[in-house]
């Protein structure tokens, strides 16, 4: 501290406190307005250094001023100055590229391996739905009309001729290659919407996610049963497998993410419900990102490959091959050395 001119001894204590530090605050303010305008990256090394130390000084001043000063203007100013500086100093420092790399190499696979119970719920919803849909169809094909909305069935209804059903599996629907891109992007946009929806609904104690996924399973089961009845079980299995392995897994993953949130609300354990939600959110968000990624891949396969590849054996190989790749990535990426082996959760 430099020795102040004698005039300052005339000041009261808190005014002296302010007069001694005001220059530093002003300097911090100029640095802050630069940083706010063009980012911390625009500052030179010494400036950043100065910013950090001025920030700590301002915090210190605020702490002291609260106990010694009754100048309301000063307190409000310091409060706001520190808040601004805090927002600049504690801005996210990680580059977007680094964050994304870490997410894919470690974050997502680990999150998947950690959440076996929600995954069980997700896949169970789908499988149960499919089984129920299949069984019900064979009891009474009329169920098909209950499950499948008419705009989706597109003539593929019970009683349709085997030739027609076969043609829906092996015809490219008259689409040329140019419109395939539109079709793929439509599928992606539509399916991702559904997945995010299923996920976000999970917060309401899991049930809506489960019901929606179950319904998707019902559709699948009834649809499959209709083709099976026409003797096309193998062909429709290939037709569904090529993209369905990825797409349906993604729906199940979205449901699992939702279930994780729902479970946190339902069974918060030793935390408050809000805390439990926050903790569960970490893995749940990663699951939905993964689901989104898988849906992009599925849309590509469905939009292009399914129309271009007409042989059932190759369709099966592509579909389950891609499934195996997902499984290998999620099962083995980002493992630490002595981590216990975890339950296989990928279909």
């Amino acid at each position: 501290m430099t020795i102040r001119p004698t005039r300052n001894t005339d000041l009261i204590r808190s005014s002296r406190f302010r007069a001694e530090r005001e220059a530093g605050w002003k300097k911090l303010e100029t640095l802050l307005s630069w940083a706010e305008r063009s980012g911390v990256g625009a500052l030179r090394y010494e400036q950043v250094h100065e910013l950090a130390s001025l920030y700590r000084q301002a915090m210190n001043s605020l702490s002291v001023a609260r106990s010694i000063s009754m100048d309301k203007a000063l307190l409000a100013y310091l409060e706001a100055l520190c808040a601004r500086a805090y927002l600049v100093v504690y801005a996210p420092q990680e580059g977007i590229r680094g964050a994304i790399w870490r997410l894919f190499s470690e974050g997502i696979p680990r999150a998947v391996r950690r959440s076996s119970l929600p995954l069980l719920i997700g896949f169970l919803a789908m499988v149960l739905g499919a089984v129920v849909g299949y069984v019900l169809y064979f009891q009474d094909p009329g169920w098909y009309f209950t499950f499948v909305p008419p705009e989706m069935s597109d003539g593929r209804a019970p009683g349709a001729s085997v030739e027609y059903l076969r043609s829906t599996l092996f015809d490219d629907g008259g689409r040329n290659k140019e419109t395939l891109g539109v079709f793929a992007s439509f599928l992606f946009s539509h399916n991702t919407g559904i997945a995010i929806f299923i996920f976000a609904l999970g917060i309401f104690v899991t049930l809506p996610s489960f019901v929606l996924t179950f319904y998707n399973g019902l559709l699948l089961g009834a649809f499959f049963a209709m083709y099976a009845e026409a003797g096309l079980a193998y062909e429709v299995f290939g037709w569904l497998s090529i993209h369905g392995v990825t797409e349906l897994s993604a729906i199940c993953l979205a449901c699992a993410g939702g279930a994780q949130l729902g479970l946190a609300v339902l069974l918060p354990g030793n935390h408050t419900r809000r805390q439990a939600l926050q903790i569960a959110g970490h893995d749940a968000v990663k699951l939905i990102i993964l689901a989104g990624l898988m849906l992009i891949v599925a849309a590509m396969i469905e939009g292009f490959l399914r129309q271009l590849v007409q042989d059932t054996a190759i369709r099966l190989a592509i579909g389950w091959g891609v499934g195996l790749l997902w499984f290998l990535w999620l099962g083995f990426a980002g493992r630490r050395h002595n981590m216990p082996a975890e339950i296989e959760a990928q279909a």
Binding site: S15, R18, A19, K26, A73, Y77, A80, L81, L261, Q278
Partner: peptide
């Protein structure tokens, strides 16, 4: 879920010391 708050941007204006 995220543990976030939405706040007003702080504005810092230093008024003169009346003392």
């Amino acid at each position: 879920i995220a543990g976030t708050l939405v706040v007003d941007n702080p504005k810092a204006i230093l008024l003169p010391d009346l003392a």
